[in-house]
Design a binder for these strands. Structure first.
Lengths: 188, 188
DNA sequence: CTGTCGATGACAGTCACTGACATCAACAGT
DNA sequence: ACTGTTGATGTCAGTGACTGTCATCGACAG
């Protein structure tokens, strides 16, 4: 057995989400998060680069899933259809964790600093998708634009899922959003 | 004559851009910016909410120009064509200030915190465009998606303009980007 | 001449974040 | 069993962004 309680990383993330959700992001100090996790402030910053990052621990995993799904589909599909496959993959992942995702999103939406961090994660996602498209022969600027379009569809579909009642499936909302984007860019 | 030198706001913005550009954003303290502008740190924060915001003083004006152009065109054009008119309007505005815009963009690209702020300004722009589309009868989610698409085209066109040589006109790059987006969402 | 106003300065305080060094269980090699 | 190393953590003293509060004092209205 180790010298310390295991999973300090996860304990910090859980404590942070609780506190941000209970009293708000700004009203929570890093020292409080660390104390609830049974650690010190200094140790918090050894696990997370800053006070915001603790809410985005899984974003790398999320990005990888999206990118892998798109890369797999690209061998036999047009870029826009490969992106649809990726959107389907992430929809499934999010559907499994609906309550946790909603709590987290409520915290993010309540604070501009967290929204900024969220946006740069989506930009990172867009860059990774564009890179994948390029590796499969899509040229610029089509690759960047397709990736941006895919992320835009994700943003709108996700927002509707979080805001709406539980009846509407995420994957269905994603497909509807993609169809709307196609319609609107076609001039309708 | 006033008690103080005029245009404290502008002096702070100029001093900040200089210092960020000369030695980098992180290596510059707010006290240094204020001193170069002949003011104190406390006064800096009366003019700008934080150290980042001083680089985004004109973003409100920029957003208004874009929105107004789109709103004007919407009376007789489809959403996507109205957005094209807006892109043309902002292209003209930026073309007039090419050197200053490039300096500023180099500073932003060199620092993640500034990129985050840039992204939330673009999101604000997207929200304003979506609102304008809704006011002109476009329903959700088409309005949000069209707005996101317009901003995506702006991002890609602008990036190519800043990165490329001076021969390529911004408005031309914007139109090319929009055409590429149409092509890629149509499945090609 | 006088009272209000508005932009600024002065100053103390909180908190996010960092660097440097100390601690000490676990573990490997002998 | 002895010992040196390792790695996650604690401790502590910073720096700098940002805020609240009160003082200052030309301009300007009446």
């Amino acid at each position: 057995m180790g010298r310390w309680e295991p999973n300090a990383h996860g304990r910090l993330a859980a404590a942070a989400l609780e506190l941000y959700s209970e009293r708000g992001y700004e009203q929570t100090t890093v020292a409080e998060i660390a104390r609830r996790a049974g650690l010190t402030e200094r140790t918090f910053f050894r696990h997370y680069a800053d006070k915001r990052e603790v809410l985005f621990a899984t974003s790398g995993e999320f990005q990888e899933l999206f990118v892998r799904a798109v890369a797999g589909a690209l061998k036999s599909a047009a870029p826009i259809d490969a992106l649809a496959v990726g959107l389907d993959a992430v929809s499934e992942m999010l559907t499994d964790q609906r309550d946790c995702v909603r709590t987290r999103q409520a915290v993010i939406m309540a604070n501009p600093e967290l929204q900024e961090r969220d946006l740069i994660k989506l930009t990172s996602m867009s860059a990774a998708l564009a890179d994948t498209l390029r590796r499969h022969g899509v040229t610029e600027p089509a690759a960047s634009l397709a990736a941006e379009a895919g992320v835009a569809v994700f943003k709108v579909g996700f927002e509707r899922w979080v805001a709406g009642d539980e009846e509407r499936e995420l994957s269905r909302l994603m497909r509807e959003s993609l169809d709307e984007l196609k319609a609107v860019t076609a001039g309708r």
